[in-house]
Every structure is written in C-alpha cells, then in structure tokens.
C-alpha cells in the first residue's frame, strides 16, 4: 500500500498556525535545522511528542530555564533517542489499552543529528526500526558533529575538511567515504524511507505527511546546510540546499513500501566543482593540485546516482 499525502500543502493556510517550535531558540543564524523542524511540524496535523538526542537542536532549544518547544519534548542522551521514543510509544499503547489515558491519536517524532543517527545511535535506531514502533525519525543531516565543533561523522563526504579531518600537508581532509544511511534504513524494510532537503519544501512536507501516516516506523534523512561548519554566508542556506540536489550530492528520493522513487532529477546536473566552490570546507579541493580528488569524487557521486536510478527502475510503481 502506498500512502498518499492527504491534501496538497497550502502555505498561506499553514502560516496562520502557531509554530510548535517557538522563537527564542539559539540555533545559529541561518541554521537549516530551524527551517526543517518548522517545516516538519507544520506538515503534521496531529498532536506530537518529540524526542531529540544530544546535538545542536537539543542544546539550542532546551536550555534551562527556557524551552522553545510547545509540544512535549524529551532529551535523554546522545545515542538513545530511538529507544527513548520507543519507550514512550510503548507506554502510549499500554496506557491507551488499559484506559489510563484518553484514546486519542498521538504521533511520535525524533529529530536527531547525523552523529546521533549514522554513528553513535545506529544500534538503538536499528533496534527500534526492527521492532516496528510507530514513530517518525528525522535525521537532521549537517554532515558532521557541529554541536561540538565540526568533527567528522560517517555522513561526512570524502575529502571534506572538518576539525578532526583537517587539511594537512600529507592528508587533504577526510579519507573515508560517507555511509549510505538512507539505504541502510531502507534495508530494514520499514514502511517509509526518504531523503529530503529544505529548499524542496513541498517535497519535504509531503514526505512527512506520508511518513506520519504509516503504521510502523518511518525515516527521513534531511540535508541541513550548516553555516558554521560548511563555511558559507548565512543567507545562502536554501540556495546551498538546492545546489546539493542539483549536483546530485543529495538526491531527493523515497522508498515507499518497497517502491523506490526519484523525486527530483536535475536538468542539467551541475558539476561537483560548483558544490565545492560554494563552501569553505571544500576550499582545498578547488586548488589545482587536488584536481584528481575532484575527479574521484565526481565519479563517486555519479556512481551513487546511477545506482539510485537503477534501484528506482528495478523497484518502480
């Protein structure tokens, strides 16, 4: 069964609703996470309980005595957001069944960074997905540990500068390729998996609506450009987001009940050099000496894209 979003998203209508994430949070200016969280929560028409593991969003939205959350929210630890929300969801089912709480629909959402998702929390996430709890897990993917100061994660692209993969005289940035987390999640055969980015807001919000409607776990990996970590001007967050899709660095696609669907095909595909030129974290790659690295990475991205196209052909509607 393929879930269709209930209604077409009408921004003017939605914009009259109060934000579930209040202003006064301390995300950096231009931070994509604020944009993405607002888009996600505006796409959900149900009461929600939110869990965030340790990370930028967590520290910037819940700093005693202030909270930016107008919905129930919990931060437990770094690695265990999936288990925490699984416990909440299990309690919801138990208490509802036993008549201890009102019988109403509540949705459960995790907003986690790539560190919490790709690295330290992978086991907890995998376990919760396998057990089939009904919750939506959003990865706010800014491709490094930004909260602790731009350290590499397994979401970081090869040859990227971070503070733990510095560009040195011998090694030009991160030596390892990034992990294909979305495919790893898809391999759990959960009802709904997707990649999204905030510039494609209608796509993103539609995906959220599909994800929140399923019975069982859903996962959306959302690219979150980071002003500080990626080294660009704060005004360009959405433009950078679009560039990621246009260079095929961040394909927008979904795996909807086993059906792979490409949601955006850039025409024409922009060269990876455009991506590198747009951000300071890649400034070393623009140097002539590193031209071979750029060629290598372009091949990498092209291969990933070809693989994705193949999957979308093989497992089409």
């Amino acid at each position: 069964m393929v879930v269709e979003a209930k209604t077409r998203i009408n921004l003017r209508e939605i914009s009259n609703k109060e934000d579930k994430l209040a202003p006064g949070h301390r995300l950096c200016l231009g931070c994509a996470e604020g944009i993405v969280v607002r888009q996600v929560l505006h796409a959900i028409d149900y009461p929600v309980v939110v869990c965030s593991p340790t990370g930028c969003l967590e520290i910037c939205t819940g700093l005693f005595p202030y909270t930016a959350w107008r919905v129930p929210w919990v931060h437990s630890a770094f690695e265990n957001a999936a288990s925490t929300i699984a416990g909440v969801e299990a309690a919801y089912r138990a208490l509802k069944r036993r008549g201890k709480i009102e019988d109403r629909v509540i949705k459960f959402v995790v907003f986690a960074g790539d560190g919490a998702t790709y690295d330290i929390g992978l086991q907890w996430l995998s376990g919760a997905l396998e057990r089939g709890h009904t919750f939506l897990y959003i990865c706010l993917n800014n491709e490094a540990y930004m909260n602790t100061g731009i350290q590499r994660s397994s979401a970081t692209l090869k040859w990227t500068w971070t503070t733990t993969t510095p560009v040195g005289k011998v090694i030009p940035g991160k030596k390892e390729s990034r992990k294909d987390m979305t495919a790893i999640i898809a391999a759990h055969n959960i009802p709904y998996v997707a990649q999204a980015a905030p510039h494609a807001w209608r796509d993103l919000m539609t995906k959220v609506r599909k994800a929140i409607a399923v019975d069982g776990p859903s996962f959306i990996n959302i690219l979150c450009p980071c002003v500080r970590g990626w080294r660009y001007n704060s005004k360009d967050t959405i433009a950078i987001s679009k560039l990621a899709a246009d260079t095929c660095v961040w394909p927008l696609y979904e795996v909807d009940h086993g059906i792979w669907r490409l949601n955006y095909k850039p025409s024409p595909q922009r060269p990876l050099t455009d991506w590198f030129l747009s951000q300071g974290r890649f400034s070393h790659l623009v140097a002539p000496d590193n031209a071979n690295l750029v060629i290598e990475l372009q091949q990498c991205i092209d291969q990933e894209w070809a693989k994705l196209e193949k999957l979308c052909q093989c497992f089409a509607d």
Binding site: L11, R12, S15, N16, L27, L29, G30, G34, T237, I238
Partner: peptide, 20 residues
C-alpha cells in the same frame, strides 16, 4: 506577494503573519 516563502524559510519563525 504573500507567497509565504520568507515565513517558510525563516529558521526563527520571525515573519509575522496575520490572516495569511
């Protein structure tokens, strides 16, 4: 034009909207 893009892309929910 009241397209709401500024509202949509504001990380801080700081665009004031009244009656769309």
């Amino acid at each position: 034009p009241h397209c709401m893009f500024c509202w949509l892309f504001c990380p801080d929910g700081s665009i004031i909207v009244k009656n769309s």
